[in-house]
Design a protein around this nucleic acid. Structure first.
Length: 339
DNA sequence: TAGCAGGAATACT
DNA sequence: AGTATTCCTGCTA
């Protein structure tokens, strides 16, 4: 079954954790039921690829490019016909994000057996990485759908037409029977107020599936709202260590922020930079050249290298932002004020 | 050889 | 002005 997100069959991954996934267990479990054939999760790149030779890989997602550039053309015409207003173009450009490390960092792989305690830590980290990966992919797919359908991410704001677009999209994506008519009189508010039972009554075949997907959209909208509220609430002092994504702020990004961004996305960058001790803010740059290249890309400094990047890090010593840990190790640094 | 430390000049915002 | 970049010398593992 085609789906933008595939979740590891291990149901433990679907449980809410202290890292705070807001996607309800039932929603994710529903997706799990639909598509769970993924065993080699760690092999997956988080970026869409056009290379057809790679489509056969067991993947975490159905590439949005697959969806957009192949069979979707005909489908989009259908959406346009049914809603009368969807604008298909402009074609989504491949994300200009810097190249990413395709493999989830897996400490211990191929190495010595880990002690039980360490094993627990590794397992917990892997779970967090997978969950963060899944949530990230869900959010990306929602964003893609919003652009394509020209609808807002928050279902509550949808008009009846928006609801129909979303239904068509979801039906198409998950190969569901067409049930748009059963929901044709509803706008976003109505839809969001409906229980799973209401959905089943309107569509016995796939009401539960639609309800689960809507639940995910609602959760994503909630997350987004929470994020924006948080940004406006933080004070200048708190801003330093907030979770706010610096890429949205419009301000030039600082190197320490950039490093934290990488560290907060272990599923994408865990291979080039990772926490050694998150509580203490100790991290290790595993691939100095790669991190420098990413920094150079972000700052549009093609000549950036680790020598220069590390000089910038050392400038933070005096400012009390980053320091060397008590036991100095190569490529290991420590945030003075950990999260 | 790569990484580290820090001075100094310069560029950028 | 603050921050980052660039280049440098010298040191260390």
């Amino acid at each position: 079954m085609a789906s933008p997100v595939r979740v590891h069959p291990d149901s433990a991954l679907l449980q809410p954790t202290r890292s705070g996934s807001v996607f309800s267990e039932s929603s994710l479990a529903h997706l799990k039921r639909e598509e769970m054939d993924v065993e080699n999760l760690e092999l997956v790149d988080s970026k869409p690829r056009l290379d057809s030779s790679e489509r056969g890989l067991t993947g975490l997602y159905l590439s949005c490019f697959d969806m957009l550039f192949t069979e979707e053309a005909a489908w989009l015409v259908r959406v346009a016909d049914s809603s009368g207003s969807v604008s298909v173009g402009p074609r989504l450009e491949p994300c200009p994000e810097p190249e990413q490390c395709p493999v989830i960092d897996s400490p211990g792989l191929g190495g010595e057996p880990l002690s039980p305690g360490l094993e627990d830590q590794v397992e917990e980290r892997s779970l967090e990485q997978v969950q963060s990966l899944v949530v990230g992919e869900v959010l990306k797919d929602i964003e893609t759908a919003c652009k394509l359908l020209n609808i807002t991410p928050d279902p509550v704001e949808w008009s009846c037409g928006n609801v129909q677009k979303w239904l068509l999209w979801t039906e198409h994506l998950y190969r569901l029977p067409q049930v748009g008519k059963a929901f044709q009189d509803l706008d976003g508010k109505d839809l969001c107020a409906m229980t799973e039972e209401d959905f089943r009554q309107r569509s016995p075949q796939c009401g539960d599936t639609l309800h689960a997907h809507l639940d995910i959209w609602k959760s994503a909208a909630w997350m987004k709202q929470r994020c924006s509220v948080g940004e406006s609430r933080i004070t200048a002092g708190e801003e330093l260590w907030s979770e706010a994504d610096s890429s949205c702020s419009g301000q030039p990004i600082h190197l320490w922020q950039f490093l934290r961004e990488l560290l907060l996305k272990p599923h994408s960058y865990g291979r080039c930079i990772r926490w050694l001790n998150k509580e203490k803010g100790i991290f290790k740059i595993e691939d100095s050249a790669h991190v420098a290249r990413l920094w150079g890309l972000r700052k549009n400094r093609p000549a950036m290298n680790y020598d220069k990047l590390s000089r910038s890090i050392r400038q933070y010593y005096k400012k009390g932002i980053i320091r060397k840990p008590d036991v100095s190790q190569r490529l290991v640094y420590q945030f003075v004020h950990p999260v």
